[in-house]
């Protein structure tokens, strides 16, 4: 199956758009989406979701246009469960499969909506077992006066936890916005140049570097 690369970060950082466009960039024909039920729902947590319990994963093939229209939104808390996108990269003469796992964005506080909370719980569960963590940060919203190194509190804690993982990369997203440059500087200052990659999920800027980074970690 190959390794899994978990996209994680605050809500509305651009994880899902990155996932969809990265798949397109790598030349996939359409989006092969596997809903993951990594967190077994315990009794009392409502009815079993699609495929939960039985361990069967629902696979959907979605054209990219449809995916961008239906999965991505400017509103927060759009993504509510884990979804793996199966991809391939040519390595040497062969191909190596891997998956990019999109997750529900994290918020600092306890959210009122049980569905949103469930999504965040799944994200944290996935963070516990991810092979590689790709931390997506909205660089346009990073400022030097932010509470923790200019990062939002939740991004700061994600970073502090995820850097204990063996493989941890930061995608400084939304580099198409002019405010993002300063944010990128702040992130690089805090985490060093090596593990920070500037990208724009929208314009696909920086995807070549991400592909190279992913290839190294396969």
């Amino acid at each position: 199956m190959g390794r899994s690369f978990l996209l994680v970060g605050a809500t509305n950082a651009g994880k899902t758009l990155f996932a969809v466009n990265f798949a397109a960039y790598l030349g996939a024909r359409d989006l092969r989406l596997r809903r993951l039920a990594l967190v077994p729902s315990r009794e009392g947590a409502g009815g079993a979701g699609p495929g939960a319990g039985s361990g069967v994963e629902a696979v959907a093939r979605v054209p990219f246009d449809t995916a961008r229209r239906t999965l991505v939104s400017p509103e927060p808390y759009k993504t509510r469960d884990l979804a793996a996108i199966d991809l391939e990269l040519s390595v040497g003469k062969g191909k190596q499969g891997f998956s990019v796992v999109d997750s529900a964005g994290l918020a600092e506080h306890i959210h009122g909506d049980a569905d949103v909370r469930k999504g965040m719980a799944q994200t944290i569960g996935a963070l516990l077992r991810a092979d590689v963590v790709l931390h997506v940060i909205d660089a346009a919203r990073v400022g030097e006066d932010g509470p923790a190194l200019g990062l939002g509190r939740i991004d700061y804690e994600v970073a502090r936890y995820a850097r204990l993982r063996p493989q941890y990369l930061i995608l400084a997203n939304k580099m198409d916005l002019p405010e993002a440059d300063r944010g990128l500087g702040v992130i690089r200052e805090a985490f060093g140049r090596d593990r920070v990659m500037p990208v724009s999920a929208l314009t696909m800027r920086g995807f070549r570097e991400v592909r190279a980074g992913v290839r190294r970690l396969l």
């Binding site: 909370r117 719980a121 799944q122 516990l128």
Partner: peptide
């Protein structure tokens, strides 16, 4: 690490506190 996701799901723990707890566990 076992019950952390459940606690987040049930609204007993914020994602922020969950991440801090996991850091302590490590």
């Amino acid at each position: 690490p076992e019950n952390v996701t459940q606690m987040v799901e049930m609204g007993q723990l914020s994602p922020y506190d969950a991440l801090r707890a996991l850091q302590r566990a490590e």
